[in-house]
Design a binder for these strands. Structure first.
Lengths: 190, 190
DNA sequence: TCCTGATTAGTCAATCTTGACTAGTCAGGA
DNA sequence: TCCTGACTAGTCAAGATTGACTAATCAGGA
């Protein structure tokens, strides 16, 4: 489970004991920019981490509400946190952009339409940027990450402008379709 | 399954009929920058897409190798491709960066060590950039995406420099731990 | 020729993720 | 007071993803 989600949960529990629901709420409202952890997944991970001995919990009950498990980090958990923290800060994994898949097949569309669609994306990006720009100081300690997003978005915007210009410049050469190669089909073409 | 993976598979099959293994190889060698589709997942998705009627296959056998299913896109698949293509190009979903999680808890480390670790990340990033820079013209039509990665990496590098400087400037104020709040614990603080 | 390790092709059980569900509580309007 | 819709807290079965496995073929060296 050497996953960034575990790092996330441990990092929060390190600062404050919490029960599952509270943990999910916290992430959803304060750290949504860097993680999308569904409620059910959070519970699943907490179970696993408890089995690992990284967290421990205490069952509490109020009235006849469902009992809550209040989790706290254990010494083993702290150790894991320190280890994963170092791994996370040291490594670089290239980011994947969902929008890239479409760009890989951009030649399937007429340049004019492609440009039109991309301009809609541009508008969505600009809106996201404006919204980020108006984000106030953040309680969850996510200022750094918000700024990262801001910077990234600005770069994306510039890049997209470039792409649009390039797409518009291309005359639409309908790509011809090759049928299945006979055998030994290698991906490289001569 | 309105997923970018389906768009990816359809986009490739649109250009050329392929069997499962071939499809996975193609993605792995030509489109790794924008997708990481495991072999087993590819087969799973192809099954589903066949059930949807987006692709059809023809079983072929050679000697007593395991039989191969050669997939081709159907008219319904082409329709789905066009639809998903438009959705993909139009929308903007903010990217998530795995490294951000660590930054959210950067105050857990002494500034000096944090800076040291981040410098290692910087080195890894620089190496990735050099490698990208030396990538030759790409057969899979991924030039646009490779350039995207290049641009993004350059921006990341600049940003990381900023972060390192900022981290180094902070005197290490050990953050105190709050214990669980008594009740009605809201995430916002006054 | 025979052996070894790489490549081709695909399957499967175990694990992870998710949307939908249960069920009690609470605030405020009719 | 009673009803409604939102909030709190967590569970569950269905669906998705993965690493590990099987099994044949092939290239090339001993």
């Amino acid at each position: 489970m050497e996953d960034e989600r575990a790092l996330l949960l441990l990092g929060i529990l390190r600062r404050q004991d919490m029960h599952g629901y509270q943990l999910h709420e916290f992430i959803d409202t304060n750290l949504a920019v860097c993680a999308d952890l569904k409620k059910a997944t959070a519970y699943f991970l907490l179970d696993k981490m408890a089995a690992q001995g990284w967290v421990a919990f205490e069952q509490t009950q109020e009235g006849n509400r469902p009992p809550r498990r209040v989790y706290r980090i254990t010494p083993a958990g702290e150790e894991a946190f320190q280890r994963m923290m170092r791994a996370n800060l040291t490594a670089y994994r290239p980011a994947r952009f969902p929008g890239d898949v479409g760009l890989a097949f951009i030649d399937a569309l007429k340049p004019a339409e492609a440009a039109h669609l991309l301009r809609q994306r541009r508008a969505a990006m600009r809106e996201a940027l404006t919204e980020l720009e108006s984000t106030p100081e953040h309680a969850g300690g996510a200022q750094l990450i918000i700024e990262h997003q801001r910077r990234h978005l600005a770069a994306e915007l510039a890049w997209l402008d470039d792409v649009i210009a390039r797409v518009e410049a291309v005359p639409h050469a309908a790509p011809q379709r090759r049928s299945a190669q006979p055998r030994r089909a290698r991906t490289a073409s001569a």
